[in-house]
Each structure stands twice: as structure tokens, then as C-alpha cells.
């Protein structure tokens, strides 16, 4: 899978989309819309193994690795959370392990979701991001193991 945009370009386009709104309600409205469009996880992966701990709502995240890139599908029982996962997936899914591990997600701050990143907030943006990076690290370790 070849991605059309660089990590920076996707983030900038998200910032653009959000910049039209300064009201919180409008921002949540787009999150809700994005949540509806999330690439849905196959129901058979909505099991404990793929459940992310530390969220007030449930989040399932399923990774796939083709030797080069990691793709993610996910779901959540709360729609706003689904919108947040959708954003993370839009930015990170389909990228190389290296890119995911090193990714600096500045868009979170710029669209005003920073408060959702703080560890005391229980929506688990931080846990989702950590989990995505962990998968990438695990695949990378696996990959370098095989090539030796």
C-alpha cells in the first residue's frame, strides 16, 4: 500500500479541517463524523486480546503487518472515542514501523485535543497511541530478528 501523503501532510490537512471551527461543539461534531467513517475492525477481533486497557470506553485495536507497513483497524463503544481513534489511524495506519515509532503527532496539540492526551483523562488517547507504537516496535523487533 502506497500512501499518498507524508506524515506531515496528513497532519497538516487535519489541522486545516479543524481550523475552520473555534467552537468546541463543532470540533466534536467532526470527531463524531470521523468516528462513523472509521475503518471497522472485523468483529472476530473484538476480543480481550485486542482491547486497550485504561480507557473509560472500550477500544479494540487490530494491527496487521505485511513486512513493510502496519495497518490498523479499530472500534470503540463510544463515538467520540471512535473519532479519536479514526484520527490516529488516518495518520499512522499504513506507515512503516520506523515512521510509527518516531512519529511526532503535533496535530493533537494544534487541533486542541491536547487535554485529551493527559494521563488523567480517561478517554485513552494516550493508551491508544502507546499501543500503536508498541505494535510497531514489536513488528520491528520481529523483522530485524528474521533478517539476521
Amino acid at each position: 500500500m502506497k500512501l499518498e501523503m507524508t506524515l506531515k501532510e496528513v497532519q497538516d490537512s487535519i489541522i486545516d479541517e479543524f481550523s475552520v471551527f473555534d467552537d468546541w461543539m463543532d470540533k466534536y461534531n467532526i470527531l463524531i463524523e470521523m468516528g462513523k467513517e472509521l475503518p471497522m475492525i472485523d468483529p472476530k477481533f473484538k476480543v480481550k486480546d485486542y482491547l486497550i486497557e485504561g480507557c473509560q470506553s472500550k477500544v479494540w485495536l487490530y494491527p496487521q503487518y505485511d513486512g513493510k507497513a502496519v495497518t490498523f483497524t479499530a472500534d470503540s463503544d463510544a463515538i467520540i472515542t471512535r473519532g479519536i481513534v479514526a484520527l490516529l489511524i488516518r495518520v499512522l495506519s499504513g506507515r512503516t514501523t520506523e515512521e510509527i515509532i518516531m512519529a511526532d503527532l503535533y496535530f493533537i496539540d494544534r487541533i486542541g485535543l491536547r487535554q485529551n492526551l493527559s494521563p488523567t483523562r480517561s478517554n485513552g488517547l494516550l493508551s491508544m497511541l502507546r499501543q500503536m507504537k508498541l505494535y510497531a516496535m514489536a513488528y520491528k523487533a520481529q523483522g530485524s530478528g528474521q533478517s539476521q
Binding site: 461543539m25 466534536y28 470506553s57 463510544a78 463515538i79 472515542t81
Partner: peptide, 9 residues
């Protein structure tokens, strides 16, 4: 509607 969505809004 999830309680968390309600609470966030």
C-alpha cells in the same frame, strides 16, 4: 449513546 459520549459533550 455511550455514557462517556454524553459526559464529554
Amino acid at each position: 449513546i455511550h455514557q462517556y459520549d454524553t459526559g464529554m459533550i
